[in-house]
């Protein structure tokens, strides 16, 4: 009789204990998965436009002609992009201009003060002043700190000089000026 009571008590305790364990035992995951993310915000892309060619107009044989970068006839380039971003600027400048058929060439040169970088982006060479950015700089070597202006636009003005020979063939001479601009990442 006493043994039966004992067995019954043991069964009850076992049941309660098992129930308690099942109640508090943590659920064991076979694995866990989490998803994080990678994010980036891309800023405004650069765009370069040649808005005005460097125009020497009519020139005479044997008489050189100069266009200052502040002259209305200066070449004008417009650069748009992320405001205040630093950019690298490279100009591939020609050594001569030529007739369309290539039958004659005329020397062109660019001095170390023939360019200006207008970070106000005015786009008008005659409006360029020293406080507008970098005035009278070398178009072969633009400042490393050149940047897109706070308004998101920067203009470049380019002057130059041509040297017609005394027997220069008459006609329209042209040459390509290639401007390359890239973000530096700062």
């Amino acid at each position: 009789m006493r043994l039966n009571v004992m067995n019954r008590s043991v069964k009850i305790i076992l049941f309660v204990a098992l129930a308690a364990v099942l109640a508090v035992a943590p659920v064991v995951n076979s694995q866990d998965v989490a998803t994080g993310s990678a994010t980036a915000t891309v800023l405004t892309a650069l765009a370069v436009t040649s808005t005005a060619a460097l125009v020497f107009g009519n020139v005479f044989q044997g008489v050189s002609a100069t266009i200052a970068n502040i002259n209305a006839a200066a070449g004008v380039y417009s650069i748009t992009g992320q405001a205040s971003a630093v950019i690298s600027i490279y100009m591939a400048l020609p050594e001569f201009v030529a007739l369309a058929d290539g039958s004659d060439k005329m020397t062109i040169s660019f001095s170390s003060t023939d360019a200006s970088v207008d970070t106000l982006g005015g786009g008008v060479p005659t409006g360029m002043v020293a406080t507008s950015g970098y005035q009278n700089i070398d178009p072969h070597n633009f400042p490393a700190a050149s940047n897109i202006g706070s308004g998101g636009t920067t203009s470049i003005y380019l002057g130059g000089k041509i040297y017609p020979t005394i027997d220069q063939a008459a006609g329209a001479y042209t040459g390509d000026i290639v401007l390359t601009v890239a973000y530096t990442g700062t």
Partner: peptide, 12 residues
């Protein structure tokens, strides 16, 4: 923390 590239310039 997520992988954050932040502001990026095109081409850079």
């Amino acid at each position: 923390n997520n992988l954050v590239f932040g502001d990026m310039f095109p081409g850079v």
